[in-house]
Design a binder for these strands. Structure first.
Length: 571
RNA sequence: CGGGGUGUAGCGCAGUUUGGUAGCGCGCUUGGUUCGGGACCAAGAGGCCGCGAGUUCAAAUCUCGCCACUCCGACCA
């Protein structure tokens, strides 16, 4: 590829709406162009990167007996009604009518399509297990796309669906897929991606893992134990408390706390610490606006995923009205209205001498003893894990909280979809059974952006060679010099003949422009042909990450560059 | 959905307070000079100032409405 003919512009100034580096560099480097919120077109360099990622995905999915298929982008609403998700999913699912007025949807995930595709095929136990996958466009009408390709509305995803006749078989295959994912990320150049336990959310099923690239710009909070191998998404991380009473209980006492409505205000006013308060967090159920009051120790935050899972429905922060019986800012567990569901977090279990609301404007209560004053209260885990919390696996105070980008996930779905869509098979005893499913996703564009996020400097991406748009970038500095031009032309052709992917810059531009563009393209090896180098009888060879800076004589350059590329590819 | 911010040339921005000829830098075109980290000189092209109403002799600028984008949060299969 001659750089002069490469469609797309590279430029100096960082676009103002880019907050993460991968976004800025991929726009500045002519990889992609913005079209609408969360919707981008790709130029050739990005297309070549995603093509290579897709090829790795294909090879690894095929290696675990996957069969590539293709599901539709536009699907009739009826199969989404069968699974129940037509109604349960919000506005992220784009719904519209076709010309005959029939409701249709844009595929945001393809469990329904997968079941639809194989439910006739899979009528006998001896067809199992099998796995089908596709690499295709998805559309999710996200409320807030952000961070360039990290979170978009339209994207390409590898999604795989496996079907089994037993939980054991699913688990065995799940492990195989887990290992395949590790190979994929390793081959793509980011072996540092880790897998963590995750919350299965509305996908259904029980066990699931997310593959995370740890980076400060990540959207997920990840809990990692420094002492053992426990790793979990914040949403799924169990919060362990080891409270022991140290002081005898004092008597209950109502105290005036005029205008002190937040934990900070109340604890400062009464001279106690946040951990010695019982805080009320109020939600409303989305389905009926019913109030849910969750009491939790004042120094902890609520993990709303845990709350949602416990209630079995989504919640939103409550709007406290005059008529609901709740006294905003002064809510306490004793004498609270019957008009709501009351829940207690584990952090309060057995605790005494707490300050809490008196359910009366301007008053709090001191001396709350959970055992004495609220006998029979049930405690559950609703709290967010904090830095330094106790590891649920090894029991040590060794949890840390980091940020990460979810680049892939795997779920044990169970029979949620096969049951809902009535996919059955006959087992060897002639009994009707529902197949057990697993599903496995990797976002292609997000992976590309994540790699860029992990490997870049101020000047541009530093692509791992396995996914780099090209392997070698030849710069002919002073291409107006006939000797330079002739040698570089020849080098370009010779490398291509040896099967090397080369981008060739023979524009008559200053060296600065040439090198800046090369930095933005992030090609692993840069070869500089120039009058100065010609005089010395050499070409310069440097790796994009600056680990390598060397030269080759004009005669042997082709072979040496080929050897370098081959060695790098084999690593 | 809640709270902020921004819409002026392909990109980055000034001009808006106090209404009066549409500006700057980068990029682009042409010619020339340069030449190893985003060169220089000269001459050019390029804007319905987000959209719609209103006020006014006169609106990028003031008023009202709408739209889009963006950031923080919520949501996220």
């Amino acid at each position: 590829m001659k750089l002069e003919k490469l469609v797309g512009e590279r430029f100096k100034e960082r676009p103002s709406d880019c907050v993460v580096d991968s976004h800025a560099l991929m726009v500045r480097g002519g990889y992609m162009k913005y079209m609408a919120s969360g919707i981008f077109s790709s130029f050739l360099p990005l297309k070549r990167i995603t093509r290579k990622i897709e090829q790795i995905l294909r090879e690894e999915m095929d290696a675990i007996d996957g069969q590539e298929v293709s599901f539709p982008v536009v699907m009739p609403a009826i199969i989404w009604q069968e699974s129940g998700r037509y109604d349960s999913i919000g506005k992220e699912l784009v719904r519209f009518n076709d010309r005959s007025g029939s409701p249709v949807v844009l595929g945001m995930t393809h469990e329904e399509a997968a079941v639809h595709l194989v439910r006739e095929y899979g009528q006998s136990y001896n067809k199992y297990p099998f796995m089908i996958y596709q690499i295709q466009t998805k559309f999710r009408d996200e409320a807030r796309p952000r961070s360039g390709l990290i979170r978009v509305r339209e994207f390409t995803m590898k999604d795989a669906y496996s079907f089994h006749t037993s939980q054991e078989d699913l688990e065995q295959y799940y492990d195989k897929c887990h290992k395949a994912y590790e190979r994929i990320f390793s081959r793509a150049g980011i072996p540092e991606v880790i897998s963590i336990a995750s919350d299965s959310g509305m996908m259904g099923g029980s066990v699931s893992h997310e593959f995370m690239l740890l980076t400060d710009i990540g959207e997920d909070s990840i809990v990692i134990c420094n002492e053992c191998d426990y790793r979990a998404n914040m949403e799924a991380a169990a919060n362990i408390v080891d409270y022991v009473r140290t002081a005898p209980s004092i008597d209950l006492e109502k105290v005036a706390t005029p205008g002190k409505e937040t934990i900070e205000e109340v604890s400062a006013f009464l001279g106690v610490e946040a951990k010695d308060t019982c805080k009320a967090v109020v939600y409303q159920q989305n389905k009926d606006d019913h109030y849910v009051v969750l009491f939790i120790r004042g120094d902890y935050d609520v993990n709303e995923t845990k709350l949602t899972n416990y209630l079995g429905c989504d919640v939103h922060p409550a709007t406290i009205t005059d008529t609901c019986g709740l006294v905003a800012g002064f809510i306490g567990p004793m004498g609270i209205t019957d008009n709501c569901t009351v829940l207690y977090d584990n952090t309060l279990k057995g605790v005494n001498n707490l300050v809490t609301g008196a359910n009366e404007v301007g008053y709090h209560v001191k001396g709350l003893d959970m055992d004495r004053d609220l006998p029979g209260a049930e405690f559950h885990d609703f709290a967010k894990v904090r830095e330094g919390s106790i590891c649920p696996k090894c029991g040590k105070h060794a949890l840390t909280v980091s940020r990460g980008i979810e680049v892939g996930n795997i779920f044990q779905l169970g029979t949620k979809y096969t049951k809902a869509m009535n996919m059955t098979y006959l087992d060897s005893d002639g009994n009707t059974q529902y197949p057990i499913m697993g599903c496995y996703g990797i976002g292609v564009g997000r992976l590309a952006a994540s790699i860029c996020e992990a490997y870049h400097d101020d000047y541009g991406p530093i692509w791992p060679i396995a996914i780099a748009p090209w392997q070698v970038h030849v710069c002919a500095v002073r291409a107006d010099d006939a000797e330079v031009k002739a040698y570089a032309d020849n080098l370009y052709n010779a490398l291509q003949e040896k099967g090397i992917e080369v981008v060739y810059d023979d524009r008559n531009v200053s060296a600065g422009v040439m090198f800046s563009d090369a930095d933005l393209l992030g090609v692993p090896f840069r070869v500089v042909v120039s009058p100065r180098n010609m005089k010395g009888g050499i070409v310069e060879i440097a790796s994009r990450d600056k680990a390598l800076k060397t030269s080759a004589s004009l005669d042997t350059a082709v072979d040496e560059i080929v050897a370098l590329v081959k060695t790098a590819l084999n690593k």
